[in-house]
């Protein structure tokens, strides 16, 4: 894919995501301010020379906090997506390949996960230790793998029936070879679409759960919980409430635009 073939929408998405990624990777390093350092005398300072984007109610640099929060969100979302996509895809391919009771069992498991709205299932898992990373991550990954499983299972069925794949198997090429050279390349476009969309969904879910108070909790800087923390000061400093939410919007919008217009 060269840059000139991208539609304007996809290009905008790419720019948004690249900007966020740059902010997340370079931000904490360039800003060089401790996101936890409180200067109470400077609380709710307006954007200016000393604090580029102002400070929050405890006099912490908004820029530093948002950079760290963006890094946290993108990292956690990426790890979640990978933890859902890799096992989901492998299980999907395996189910289509093996068939039989293994496939039926996996399909039943996937249907069980889909029986409940996913946020509800995540909440039930988060309830084991509200405010911890681990149940949040496990919950999102557990809910997420199903999509990759279903898509890769459906696609693999079709791929396995193609003449060249059948020929390769009859000729005795190993499973690893067939998987790596014949199946995965064909799955890749669909999987990358799912993963990009899933990344946006994970960023949104993490910030939403943190906003409600069940995700990542203060004092850790997180985009959703920053909005909650600053909500009582929304009259004096509306920007501090809006900026973290705007970063979430940018991330999700970037993912959706990159996937393209027809995205579900």
């Amino acid at each position: 894919m060269s840059g000139s073939t991208l539609s304007p929408g996809k290009r905008t998405g790419l720019v948004l995501l690249a900007a966020l990624l740059g902010f997340a990777v370079l931000g904490p390093w360039v800003v060089d301010a401790d996101p936890a350092r409180q200067v109470l005398a400077h609380s709710l300072a307006a954007p200016g020379a000393e604090y580029l984007l102002g400070t929050d109610h405890l006099g912490r640099s908004m820029l530093a906090r948002m950079a760290h929060a963006t890094r946290l969100s993108l990292l956690l979302a990426a790890v979640t997506v990978l933890s859902a996509a890799v096992p989901g895809t492998l299980l999907g391919v395996m189910a289509a390949w093996r068939g039989g009771w293994a496939e039926s069992g996996l399909v039943l498991l996937a249907d069980a996960v889909l029986a409940l709205p996913s946020l509800l299932l995540v909440l039930l898992l988060v309830a084991f230790a509200p405010g911890d990373f681990l149940p949040l991550y496990l919950g999102l990954a557990l809910v997420g793998w199903v999509e990759y499983f279903r898509v890769s299972r459906a696609l693999t069925r079709g791929i396995l029936a193609k003449p060249h794949v059948e020929a390769a198997r009859l000729l005795g090429f190993g499973r690893g070879y067939v998987l790596r050279r014949l199946i995965l390349p064909e799955l890749l476009p669909a999987l990358s679409t799912l993963a990009t969309f899933g990344l946006g969904g994970a960023v949104l879910a993490i910030s939403t759960l943190s906003f409600v108070g069940l995700g990542i909790r203060p004092p850790v800087a997180e985009l959703g919980s920053m909005t909650t923390e600053l909500l009582p000061h929304a009259y004096e400093a509306p920007l501090t409430v809006l900026m973290p939410a705007a970063l979430v919007l940018m991330a999700v919008l970037g993912c959706h635009l990159l996937v393209g217009r027809g995205a579900r």
Binding site: T208, L231, L242, A245, L249
Partner: peptide
Amino acid sequence: SVLLRAVPAYALGL
């Protein structure tokens, strides 16, 4: 609709 689907529901409410 693209914009609305990317906005977190809590931010929209706020």
